[in-house]
């Protein structure tokens, strides 16, 4: 269970998050919507420990652990995974070499032996097919020369390899065509275990047709201003954000 209490965060001395309260129980999917600049990506970056963001107030616990006291790799080992909105290219670092290092780092944190080569390659093949990632891409440098859509598939493929317990999908639908979106979303659903939780950041209802949220939140000015069921996403799709009144008084 992830519990965020009164979270304030700044980037370059500018306050972006102004008191987020959010609880995501095991197995729940929460959609996070809101206009550009509302703080959605900042929240996801803060959760995974991006060094450019400073938490000025509040707490975040994950399964009882103080998340904010952990380094980014420790958070990853604890089960957090961020599918980046704009995944970086890492020239020269082969995708398989990188993923093997990541999988083994995770296993090491769990006290397991490193995975041997044949098992690893078997796993790569199986998970790759699940998200429809071209085998050529798995042998290239991380994200180098990937199209926008390929990068997003690659993110979900990495998720499949690392089997996280908490996923944050930051606009995973952007850059994907309708078919790719379906494949990626179905891949996510297949990979998901009953207790896997997720925060899904999106501007569109489309992704939520595949990945059905239990709760929908609207973020504005660094705070959650409205929380509702799946129908809230449909309403936003129809009417935009302007009609939503601030439920939370400053």
């Amino acid at each position: 269970m992830l519990e965020i209490r009164n979270l304030h965060a700044t980037v370059a001395d500018k306050e972006i998050l102004r008191g987020i309260d959010l609880t995501v129980r095991d197995g729940e999917i929460h959609a996070l919507m809101g206009q550009n600049g509302a703080g959605k990506s900042t929240l996801s970056n803060v959760l995974v420990g991006h060094p450019a963001y400073t938490v000025t107030e509040g707490t975040v616990t994950y399964n009882g652990q103080d998340l904010l006291a952990m380094s980014p790799d420790e958070r990853s080992h604890a089960g957090l995974f961020l599918s980046f909105q704009q995944p970086v290219e890492i020239p020269g670092v082969n995708m398989n070499v990188f993923l093997r290092a990541a999988v083994n780092a995770r296993r090491k944190s769990m006290g397991l032996e490193p995975m041997d080569s044949p098992s690893f390659l078997r796993m790569v093949k199986e998970r790759r097919q699940l998200v429809g990632l071209d085998s050529k891409l798995a042998n290239r440098s991380v994200n180098e020369g990937f199209s926008g859509g390929e990068r997003k598939r690659s993110e979900i493929f990495q998720m499949a390899m690392l089997e996280p317990s908490f996923c944050i999908l930051d606009e995973t639908d952007s850059g994907l065509d309708v078919d790719a979106l379906r494949i990626v979303a179905e891949g996510f659903n297949k990979l998901r275990k009953p207790d896997t939780s997720a925060i899904v950041i999106t501007h569109y209802q489309r992704l939520l047709d595949y990945i059905r949220p239990d709760v929908v939140h609207v973020l504005r000015g660094g705070r959650i201003v409205r929380t509702g069921g799946p129908q809230l996403a449909a309403e936003i799709e129809q009417k935009g954000f302007d009609w939503i009144k601030d439920d939370v008084q400053p």
């Binding site: 995974v48 420990g49 991006h50 060094p51 380094s71 980014p72 790799d73 958070r75 990853s76 080992h77 995974f81 961020l82 980046f84 995944p87 970086v88 290219e89 890492i90 020239p91 020269g92 670092v93 070499v97 990188f98 993923l99 290092a101 990541a102 999988v103 780092a105 995770r106 944190s109 440098s141 991380v142 990495q158 690392l162």
Partner: peptide, 23 residues
């Protein structure tokens, strides 16, 4: 950015740096 990306995937800061330098 690359260092953070790799750490997010579970590599320690040292491992990430080494992989980037080696590449």
């Amino acid at each position: 950015d690359a260092l953070f990306y790799m750490q997010q995937r579970g590599l320690s800061a040292d491992e990430a740096r080494t992989l980037l330098k080696q590449a």
